[in-house]
Amino acid sequence: MRFGVIVFPGSNCDEDAYHAARDVFGQEAEYLWHKDTELKGADVLILPGGFAHGDYLRTGAMARFSPIMGPVRAFAERGGPVLGICNGFQILLESGLLPGAMLRNRGLKYRCEHVHLRVEQTDTPFTGKARAGQVLRIPIGHGEGNYFAPAEMLKQIEANRQVVLRYTDPNGVLNDDWNPNGSVNAIAAVCNERRNVVGMMPHPERACEVLLGGVDGRVIFESVLASLRSAESLALQPQSAGRAS
């Protein structure tokens, strides 16, 4: 499979996502510069963490105007899997590809630490290999991860089962003490209505190797690989049937 990792000026987890895709999971990976206008045949897109355009004005606010975002939008509309991690999530929110907005962390300070996440939905390309209710231990690193949606929008997001991950205690129980940033309904990740675009504040690419102290992030990558393979085998079925006859 081919991962396309989008690089905005100020992205700083682009190499980490690329490393995870290529070196940890043995997949093809390609950097896509924000001024590029095509996706170089990527099967899955990652908008990585960082401070695109310095996060000046608002986090992710300028990146949505980059030329690459046209093809990204078209890819998402065709149903292609898109994952926004941290700043990538913020960019997807600002672009309107995902609902809601980010505020400063409740404690006002940047927080870098491991958090516990409960898997809420498994029918997205990035959580298909996880169990519903499974608790993942994955690091965060952000100053503006306080997810917000106006009441009406929030109601709709919940009704549509668009909340993919929530911050919980280590046992998977909702507890405000374990909500690191004050996100409404302890939301750590959401998807779009079509479920192919997912944004998450935690960094799965930081939790894919034993040496780094945890491998709970692997399931995000394994899920999308499985999802792409099954999509591919579906697409290939008529062809292979033809060859057999």
């Binding site: 980490d16 963490g49 870098c112």
Partner: peptide, 16 residues
């Protein structure tokens, strides 16, 4: 203090 620093970016940190 160190929680305010991103100490994991670049995914190389093996002693936190």
């Amino acid at each position: 203090i160190y929680r305010q620093y991103d100490h994991m970016v670049q995914t190389n940190t093996i002693n936190l």
